[in-house]
Computed example of a mutant assay.
Amino acid sequence: MEIPVTGFIVHSEGPDSSHSHKLYITSWDGRPTTHTHHFSGNTSFDVGHNHHYAGMTEPAPSGVQHVHNYRTETSFNDGHTHTIIGTTGPAIPLQSGGHYHYFQGYTTINGRTPHRHMYNGTTGNEVN
């Protein structure tokens, strides 16, 4: 019996010149097995300005405890942008079904006066 499976492999370099591969199965027998979340917000106000950001988390398995990685660029304000990279906290169930995640961190350092911004928030509900 053949079952159609789709997915992708991610190659990553380790800090000691080692590398690994992660296999993400995105559908099994035509049914999605992963999901993502929208996220957006505003950074803290530092050095006279703040930035807006928005993005989509990386896929993660559905139906089990999990976290999501995320990465996005901030809006262009005061002549520069920042990068936001992180990992959400664990899934928090919603009474209406589905779940969301809390996230927080600091942007990369950039700007005429080098600085960073703090950010935090919650993702939206899961998207299949």
Rank of each mutant, 00 (worst) to 15 (best):
Pro114Gly: 05
Thr34Ile: 13
Trp28Asp: 13
Thr6Arg: 15
Tyr70Lys: 03
Pro15Gly: 04
Phe103Val: 02
Tyr106His: 14
Tyr102Gln: 08
Gln104Leu: 09
Phe76Leu: 12
Gly55Glu: 06
Asn42Thr: 15
Leu94Ile: 04
Gly30Ala: 06
His49Lys: 08
Thr107Cys: 08
Pro93Asn: 05
Asp29Ala: 13
Val10Tyr: 08
Gly89Trp: 02
Pro93Cys: 01
Asn125Leu: 11
Thr88Glu: 00
Ala91Lys: 05
His51Phe: 09
Gly105Glu: 02
Tyr70Ser: 07
Glu126Pro: 08
Gly30Ile: 14
His35Asp: 04
Gln65Ser: 10
Pro4Asn: 15
Gly55Asn: 03
His37Leu: 10
His51Gln: 02
Val47Asp: 15
Thr74Pro: 05
Asn77Leu: 04
Thr88Ser: 01
Ala91Ser: 13
Gln95Arg: 03
Tyr119Asp: 08
Pro32Lys: 09
Thr6Tyr: 15
Arg112Glu: 14
Asp78Phe: 14
Tyr53Ser: 07
Pro61Ser: 12
Ala54Asn: 03
Thr81Gln: 03
Pro61Trp: 01
Glu2Pro: 14
Ser12Asn: 10
Glu58Arg: 10
Phe8Lys: 09
Thr122Asn: 05
Asn125Gly: 13
Lys22Val: 05
Ser40Leu: 12
Ala60Lys: 04
Thr36Arg: 01
Thr123Phe: 07
His35Met: 05
Pro90Glu: 10
Gly89Asp: 06
Ser17Met: 11
Pro15Ile: 00
Glu13His: 15
Pro90Met: 09
Thr107Pro: 05
Thr34Arg: 10
Thr72Leu: 02
Gly30Phe: 08
Ala91Asn: 11
Pro15Asp: 00
Glu73Gly: 09
Ile109Val: 15
Phe39Val: 00
Ile92Thr: 05
Thr72Arg: 01
Pro61Phe: 06
Glu126Phe: 10
Gly48Pro: 05
His82Thr: 00
Ser17Gly: 13
Gly7Phe: 03
